[in-house]
Write a protein that binds this DNA or RNA. Structure first.
Length: 377
DNA sequence: CCTGACTCC
DNA sequence: CATGGGAGTCAGG
């Protein structure tokens, strides 16, 4: 396996100061903006902030990276400092001297949708997307003689959407265990599923997730780096393929406006008074909330129910394993090596059968010697 | 204490 | 005209 070398922090900040031509606090967005936009006279791209100066966020820096080396180095600097301050240094501080472990708090009354949240430390946002990030994740290891087992719901929110909407194409896709992103890609790009390229599938994945959040053509265009018009075509084609989804979303917002609230499948209620706002942006924000909450909230209902049942089974069968973490669609369990098959079977079966929807629930399970290296079984 | 930046699902 | 849902932590100010 090969991996691009990532520079040392001490070399990066030296280089950034050199490129800036004067010392400044690299962590200060305000000072950075001064360097970029006043001293170096780089173009102040579209993005300005609501109140204060000019944005220096990742989108802006990526754009500026084309015309100057500093922004590129800064992105690398930010990646590394975030990993070090939040995860390496932060987690080290949180190790309990008695247990040698970090112990999070799971909060049950924080989110508006019914999800759990995790704090002190937050173990629901441990890096996973980048190679460097996975080196952090690999620091989470089981007790000697144990494996870490991860069981995650496959596309649970899209399955909940299929259930709620009853959309025939979406329901059938999940009943037949099809690759939903590939299927959407085939439709959006008008090609046979077997001719879908990785690039097309990636775009379709963005569309599928965007739908759940109530994304606009503008937002999709920005996300995919395409034109507004093409983004609108993608969305139109999506709704042509899944007309039941379009109908469901319309009806959900209408009903929410009449009732003043939306509910999840198990009856959790969220009031959304802004649906009646006469300020369009406020109202549209409320409409996206009305669409997303039953989906995200029902997924939360499902995994919570599964956690109760998994715990009950662990106790009833006296399996010497521990449910350690929940990360919204995933459970992480520590289990002795000789129990791993038994636990895998029990957890998968429990999670998949905890609720009976119009589509099957699918759970992928993997285990290994750390949280980054989990072989799927 | 808030803001803007980053991390996750 | 604004423009994707839900969170937590960090540093700076």
């Amino acid at each position: 396996m090969s991996r691009a070398f990532s520079p040392r922090l001490s070399d990066l900040d030296k280089k950034i100061i050199e490129l800036a031509g004067e010392p400044f606090n690299i962590n200060s967005t305000k000072q950075l903006a001064e360097i970029l936009f006043v001293k170096l006279k780089l173009p102040q791209k579209k993005k300005t902030r609501k109140k204060t100066g000019y944005s220096t966020d990742v989108e802006v820096l990526k754009e500026l990276a084309q015309s100057h080396e500093l922004p590129q180095q800064l992105l690398a600097y930010r990646n590394l400092t975030k990993l070090k301050s939040t995860y390496v240094d932060g987690l080290k501080r949180m190790v309990n001297p008695d247990t040698g472990r970090v112990h999070t708090s799971f909060n049950q009354t924080v989110t508006s949708t019914g999800r759990l949240s995790s704090s002190d430390p937050n173990l629901q946002n441990i890096p996973v997307r980048t190679e460097e990030g996975r080196r952090i994740r690999a620091l989470f290891i089981p007790a000697p003689g144990n494996f870490l087992l991860s069981a995650d719901y496959s596309q649970i929110e899209l399955r909940v959407l299929a259930h709620y909407s009853g959309d025939e194409a979406l329901v059938n896709a999940f009943k037949n265990d099809e690759d939903i992103h590939r299927l959407t890609a085939a439709e959006v790009f008008s090609v046979f599923p077997e001719l879908v390229t990785p690039e097309m599938r990636r775009a379709a994945k963005t569309v599928n997730f965007g739908i759940i959040y109530g994304i606009s053509a503008f937002g999709l265009a920005k996300e995919l780096g395409i034109g507004n018009k093409q983004a609108k075509e993608f969305i139109d084609r999506y709704f042509a393929k899944y007309p039941g989804v379009k109908r469901y979303m319309k009806e959900t917002v209408e009903k929410a406006r009449e009732q003043g609230y939306v509910t999840t499948l198990l009856g959790r209620r969220r009031y959304i008074p802004d649906l009646k706002s006469r300020v369009r942006t406020v109202r549209e924000f409320a409409e996206r909330t009305a669409i997303n909450t039953p989906i995200q909230g029902t997924a939360a209902d499902i995994i919570k129910l599964a956690m109760i049942e998994v715990d009950s089974n662990i106790q009833a069968e006296k399996i010497p394993c521990r449910m350690l973490l929940q990360v919204h669609d995933e459970l992480i369990i520590e289990a002795p090596e000789k129990e791993i098959i038994k636990v895998t079977t029990m957890v998968k079966k429990t999670m998949e059968n905890v609720m009976d929807l119009a589509v099957p629930l699918k759970v992928d399970v993997g285990w290994g010697v750390n949280w980054a290296k989990l072989e799927n079984k």
